[in-house]
Simulated assay, not measured.
Amino acid sequence: MINYDGRRFRKVSSDPDAPVTLYNQKDDIIWAELTGGSVRLGSLTGKCGPDGTIDMAYTMVLHNGAVISGHSVNTPEFLPDGRIQLNEVWERYGAHAERGTSSIVEVRD
């Protein structure tokens, strides 16, 4: 199992202000709080599988007032420089229902 505790991730985008999210882990449980960019406050909670795949639920309140909730399965990929990229397959529920894929990449100082 990959230990995500203390690792920071940012959405793969051209936006230099994209929020950076600090992941926490205890045993197989993962959680994080996020702010920045269009997100006023968000959180995620999930479970890490033996192969490092994260199965999580998330909620966000955006600056435009929208409240978003959904589910995501994030599969790790190791980049040549040793960082982790999480390839996400996500689904949003309710009024903002949508499905898609995206990636977040580990940020190092």
Rank of each mutant, 00 (worst) to 15 (best):
V20A: 04
N64Q: 09
D15E: 14
N24R: 15
L86C: 02
I84Q: 01
P50R: 10
I84M: 04
H63N: 14
M60H: 05
F78A: 08
R8F: 03
V39A: 11
P19F: 09
W31A: 08
G36I: 10
F78L: 12
P76S: 04
E77K: 11
G37Q: 11
D28Q: 15
S43M: 14
I2L: 15
I68H: 04
V105S: 05
F78K: 09
S14Q: 13
A18L: 08
D27V: 09
A95Y: 07
G100K: 01
S72Y: 01
E88F: 00
P80H: 07
L34G: 10
L86F: 05
N64F: 08
V61W: 04
N87I: 10
H71R: 15
S69N: 13
I30F: 11
G49L: 14
W31L: 09
V105P: 00
F9A: 06
P50K: 13
V61P: 00
S69E: 10
E98V: 02
S38P: 14
V67N: 08
Y23M: 13
G6E: 13
S72M: 06
T53D: 02
G36C: 10
G46H: 05
L34D: 06
L34Q: 14
T35P: 01
D109M: 04
L34P: 00
N3Q: 13
A18C: 04
G37P: 11
N87L: 07
S102R: 07
V105H: 02
Y23C: 02
T35R: 15
T101K: 07
G52P: 04
G42W: 06
E88Y: 00
L79H: 03
V61L: 15
D15Q: 09
D17A: 12
G65S: 08
A32R: 04
G70Y: 08
I30R: 06
G42N: 10
P50A: 14
E77M: 06
G70M: 06
G42L: 08
A66C: 05
G94M: 04
V67C: 09
A18P: 03
R7F: 04
D109G: 12
E98S: 07
G82Q: 05
N74V: 00
T53L: 03
I2V: 15
S14R: 11
S14D: 14
I84A: 02
G49H: 11
R108M: 06
W90P: 00
K11V: 12
A32S: 15
D109N: 12
V73Y: 03
W31K: 08
H96G: 02
T35E: 15
S38M: 10
D28M: 10
P16I: 10
M60C: 04
E106D: 09
Y93S: 12
D109H: 08
R92T: 05
H71D: 08
A18R: 05
